[in-house]
Write a protein that binds this DNA or RNA. Structure first.
Length: 719
DNA sequence: GTATCCCGCCATACG
DNA sequence: CGTATGGCGGGATAC
């Protein structure tokens, strides 16, 4: 299909046609969105700084100004790709109007994603013939995923742009360049806007801010989330689920009132926009709330259904099932974007009720803390409105609290605990949340970041310590882990980053899941690692899902539980109890040689050996050095830099791993789901003690997931 | 089957 | 009226 559809570009440049883009590989594996990165992500446009590239667009849009874009022109009729498409075509034939529409669309084609290098080459071998093209090129759905698209989008701009330059984003331009309809760009931009990575400047234009203020934004959101007592809400919902109740919360928990204004908070102050009256509706708000849920969650894991329920609640209550479905749909959209930003990753949680899709926060968590500081910061950053917002929010929150309080929070909490439980962190950093230190870090980090940017990125924050450094490095991703990606400014880096992230994620996951703890630990390593950089990269990204979480206590304790150890320390005391140490050790020992890519099989085997732990282990490879990463490198070709971080991350990850795991264990998988079930049950956990958290989640990696989800293939490096 | 989620119709907002 | 935005959900795809 691609073939068929040419894009404007193609038109312009006829020769390229298929190959470039095509590749797909579709099947590969990955789940959907993954990123690969191609070298080309930013194809034409100049990435970094320049936002706009007229060249390509020329035809289409004028771009720069808000002028209205022309809709695109058509290309030939449509692309037959989907069945629907065909139908449409037919229809269009019948009706002119429709036809027009079609024309408009016309453009998309997959862009090249990927790097040509590998894939293409591979594919090329096969042949470029038309046939191949057809087959290969087929635009698989994945290629068109929002996550991938978002990645491409992000690759066009520096994560940490220099303050001096302001980048403007022309929606049309981007749409054309990425080969998608504008509608899709809105989806991305809206989410980015909710995190203040961009802001709307004018009609068709958005200003790119990058992740500089992300920490602040997250802090603010975290606070808001706390105020809203999202944690409790989540707990309630979970309970309900247990009960079976689905949507509908009878209780109405808290909210009687609307949420306060997250939105508002969203608007930065960007000069130009004065008018904003965006009625911001759902996507933006939903995105912020969704993020808040992660930030307030101890486990940092949020299931889609819980998130959907909470969101619905707030807004309205219609327990309508359809509404729920729609919400979930939107959440997937948001999640894809957040995944591309390396803030979350997909996991599965198995609860009593069964396995459910969920996402785990892998972004920075550090800040917690006290309000004031935060506030200040935010204030500085965000101007006025923030404060206002905050105040408002606070007020609301208070009210809510009061109400809630009355409620049964207690119960809820208990239940919740069960579910969530887990927790996080382990020993090392338990406090993170509590302590203010995190805040400090955050701020420091921010500062550093900026400086760094200015300077050059590099830097060595690393040095020291733990968290801070890491955070500093990666603002975006506070976690040590992901930081790398961010760190890099270059576009390429971004691209690359995806991989790293993955790695990180994976690692962390394996380890224990919790990012938190891990992070801190990691940081140090990272530093050291950094230098090594590239090597580490090899890992690749594993997108999502590698793990599953199971709730409940572990069954036998033995194995799994113990192994796993707790990562969670904070919460779960349980972890402490037993296992932790051992686990950690292991982790440490191990390293991951390769990235995660390993096939599930391997893991499994390992698992068997050790049990869940083993899973974790693999990742560890500390060394990151390994290397292999060539692939990643590829991208980098142009961009050198930052990759390094990745390595660091890895390290961190491993460390984390140690901590992590607390309650759950990882299992290998699917294969044995049964097991998991067993587990679930409550054994009560060890802990029962203090923590409420009764339920534990198990994280399991799923082989499938691995394989499947990640299609990645990236073979990795293997090592 | 279920989980994801693309696609794009169509309602709004705005001019 | 037109365009700009983006809610929304049918239905396709991935698993």
């Amino acid at each position: 299909m691609e073939v068929n559809c040419l894009t404007l570009k193609d038109l312009i440049n006829p020769r390229q046609p298929r190959l470039d883009f095509a590749t797909e590989d579709g099947e590969n594996a990955q789940k959907e969105n993954i990123f690969v990165d191609p070298s080309r992500m930013a194809p034409k446009t100049p990435i970094k700084n320049e936002p706009i590239d007229l060249s390509k667009q020329k035809i289409f849009t004028p771009e720069r100004n808000p002028i209205t874009p022309v809709k695109l022109v058509d290309r030939h009729q449509a692309e037959p790709w989907t069945p629907t498409a065909n139908l449409k075509m037919l229809i269009s034939a019948a009706s002119p109007d429709i036809r027009d529409r079609e024309k408009k669309k016309g453009l998309f084609r997959p862009i090249e994603n990927k790097d040509n290098a590998f894939t293409d080459s591979l594919q090329l071998d096969v042949g470029d013939t038309a046939m191949d093209v057809f087959q290969k090129r087929r635009p698989s759905r994945k290629q068109k995923s929002l996550g991938l698209l978002c990645q491409k989008f992000l690759a066009r701009y520096p994560s940490y742009p220099l303050s001096t330059e302001k980048t403007t984003i022309s929606l049309d331009e981007v749409a054309v360049s990425l080969g998608v309809e504008r509608r899709r760009i809105y989806d991305i931009v809206n989410v980015l806007e909710s995190l203040h990575l961009v802001s709307r400047v004018a009609k068709n234009q958005y200003g790119w801010h990058g992740r500089h203020s992300l920490p602040k934004t997250l802090r603010t959101l975290q606070r808001l989330g706390e105020k809203q007592k999202y944690e409790e809400q989540m707990a309630h919902l979970q309970q309900r689920e247990l009960d079976l109740v689905d949507y509908k919360f009878g209780d109405r928990k808290k909210d009687g009132y609307p949420d306060p204004q997250l939105l508002d908070f969203s608007e930065l102050d960007y000069p130009s926009s004065s008018a904003n009256s965006r009625k911001d509706k759902s996507l933006r708000i939903m995105s912020q709330k969704f993020v808040m849920l992660f930030l307030v969650s101890k486990t940092k894991i949020v299931t889609l259904d819980v998130a959907a329920k909470i969101l619905i609640e707030e807004s309205q209550d219609t327990p309508d099932h359809s509404k729920f479905k729609t919400k979930v749909r939107r959440l997937y959209d948001i999640a894809n974007v957040l995944t591309s930003l390396a803030l979350i990753e997909k996991v599965h949680v198995t609860e009593e009720r069964g396995r459910k899709p969920a996402f785990k926060w892998i972004g920075p968590v550090d800040f917690s803390s006290s309000d004031e500081e935060l506030v200040d910061v935010s204030a500085s950053v965000l101007p006025e409105f923030k404060r206002e917002t905050r105040d408002q929010i606070q007020v609301c929150a208070i009210e809510k609290l009061a109400r809630h309080g009355s409620f049964n929070r207690v119960q809820a909490s208990e239940r919740i605990q069960r579910k969530v439980d887990s927790e996080p962190s382990s020993p090392s950093r338990e406090e993170r949340g509590s302590g203010g230190f995190s805040l400090e870090f955050g701020s420091l980090a921010a500062i550093y970041q900026q400086k760094i940017e200015d300077n050059s990125q590099e830097k060595g924050f690393e040095s020291n310590s733990v968290m801070p450094p890491s955070s500093s490095l990666d603002p975006a991703a506070p976690f040590p882990i992901r930081s790398d990606s961010e760190y890099c400014v270059n576009p390429l880096a971004h691209q690359a980053f995806s991989m790293p992230q993955t790695d990180l994620q994976t690692l962390s996951i394996h380890s224990g899941l919790n990012g938190q703890g891990g992070v801190s630990l990691a940081a140090p390593d990272v530093e050291s690692l950094k230098p090594a950089p590239l090597a580490s990269q090899p890992l690749l990204y594993v997108p999502s899902t590698s793990l599953f979480m199971l709730c409940g206590s572990l069954p036998e304790g033995p194995s799994p539980g113990s192994e796993k150890d707790s990562r969670s320390s904070d919460v779960s005391a349980a972890a402490e109890q037993s296992s932790t140490p051992s686990v950690q050790k292991r982790l440490s020992e191990e390293r991951k040689p390769q990235g995660e890519e390993e096939p599930a099989t391997k893991r499994q085997s390992r698992d068997y050996e050790d049990g869940p732990l083993s899973l974790v282990m693999p990742k560890k490879p500390s060394d990151s050095t390994d290397i292999a990463s060539p692939k990643t490198l590829n991208n980098r070709g142009s961009v050198p830099l930052e990759d390094i971080h990745l390595n660091g991350q890895l390290c961190a990850a491993k460390e984390c791993s140690g901590k992590t795991t607390a309650n759950g264990f990882v299992s290998s998988e699917w294969g044995n789901p049964s097991r998991s079930t067993e587990v679930e049950k409550p054994s009560k956990d060890n802990e029962g003690t203090k923590q409420p958290s009764l339920l534990q989640y198990l994280y399991v990696q799923s082989p499938t997931v691995l394989g499947s989800s990640d299609p990645q293939e990236y073979p990795t490096h293997s090592l």
